[in-house]
Nucleic acid binder design. Structure first.
Lengths: 218, 218
DNA sequence: GTAAAAATAAGGGTTTACACTAATAATTTT
DNA sequence: AAAATTATTAGTGTAAACCCTTATTTTTAC
């Protein structure tokens, strides 16, 4: 009988997953935690064969909890179960050391496959997520060289930040030029630099990038 | 045996709640829906005693689904089960006609009490939420003077919502056309309608409008 | 004080966005 | 059954977006 710990801030979700796991004979839920901090405490008295981990949680999130837990117990098998399906969260959790990644929108069958894989020490990644990643890869083509993916690593100049902020408030190139008493060509040059640095292909995606990465307030 | 429909975009959450309801003899889950639109279709063939409804869902959200469902079936008993604990969502759902409101962070007992109350036609509001609202009543009070009339009055067709969602994920007109197997001219027509209805002048401002007014999830 | 980076600007080219008009078929409402 | 709305597609034209190269001035850095 495999021992399982569920880490998720939604009590009802924990209840449901617990029922599903136990009624299907997947294992026994020996503990639950509503955030990463409580989970780390729980590990002092419980040794699970599998951890089902959410990402977004108060006090301590999933990335930090996964990282810290694996520092102490490197053999821990962690399956991420979340509703966040963006590439960054996926990469962060994999870097933190999670073995598998499944979305809450996934079906029961996929969840069960993921559990089996992770308990056996194998990797499992949600098909929906893989599709999303592949689609994004085509859209961005060769502009995502894996190394430069950290948003905090990107350096914007003061002017670029200023221009970006204006794009994010909905202004066009000519409007920004007028506002800053600069030539249209200058604003276009700044935009080109912004597109290059963020690996985005047009202004709309640049603005979406800025919003998603909280580079601006909207 | 009470007949229940679960409306939530997270498949695994539906599974869990279903198991919980059925193993505790609360009723039988006769149908599930991953968004409001699918739910409205489901109502044509199923007559539930209770609907458990999420708020944030793609295609059609909980507010709209609740409103439309109650227009057709005024006696429908709807219990909102969500992780959104802000006053706006609470008020909108109550205005839409939901009888109860429970957070996903709530415990099983509170959930069961809410179900019993709503099935009997009574109201039930999550204690956590009530506390939150009472705490914030003084802080917000007059700060939101019901100035939200414009946005909720706008009516988008199903196609328009679909196209809008694709714009908000950063796709261009030609990419959306390819994705939906439609002509570029068709997508342009939908965009023109969206720009007209939202009083925006270009796609970027349309997307910013949608994000600011929470018409889409980003 | 020289090299590097940043800010500015232009020319020229392709692609996409957007407005306006118009038309047909399907669906829904009355 | 008739009317209204929705979904679809097209043509035409202007404006804006976007790419590429080049280049000067200013600021920053070592």
């Amino acid at each position: 009988m495999k021992k399982i710990i569920i880490v998720d801030d939604h009590s009802l979700f924990r209840e449901g997953i617990k029922l599903m796991l136990e009624s299907n004979g997947f294992g026994e839920v020996i503990a639950e935690a509503e955030n990463g901090s409580v989970f780390l405490e729980t590990l002092k008295t419980h040794k699970p064969d599998l951890v089902i981990m959410d990402i977004e949680m108060p006090v301590m999130n999933g990335q930090e909890a996964t990282k810290k837990a694996l520092e102490i117990y490197p053999d821990l098998k962690i399956l991420v179960l979340t509703m966040l399906n963006d590439r960054e969260n996926y990469q962060e959790m994999i870097n933190a050391g999670a073995l598998g990644f499944v979305l809450k929108t996934s079906g029961k069958k996929e969840f069960e496959k993921a559990i089996q894989a992770v308990i056996n020490g194998e990797n499992y990644f949600s098909n929906d997520l893989l599709r999303e990643i592949i689609l994004n890869m085509n859209a961005h083509q060769q502009s995502v060289p894996v190394a430069k993916n950290n948003v905090s690593d990107i350096h914007f100049t003061a002017r670029e930040k200023e221009v970006l902020a204006h794009f994010c408030s909905g202004l066009t190139v000519s409007e920004i030029a007028e506002k800053l008493f600069l030539s249209i060509k200058t604003i276009e040059a700044h935009r080109s630099a912004l597109l290059r640095k963020t690996s985005t292909k047009n202004t709309l995606n640049l603005v979406l990038f800025a919003i998603k990465n909280k580079l601006v307030e909207i």
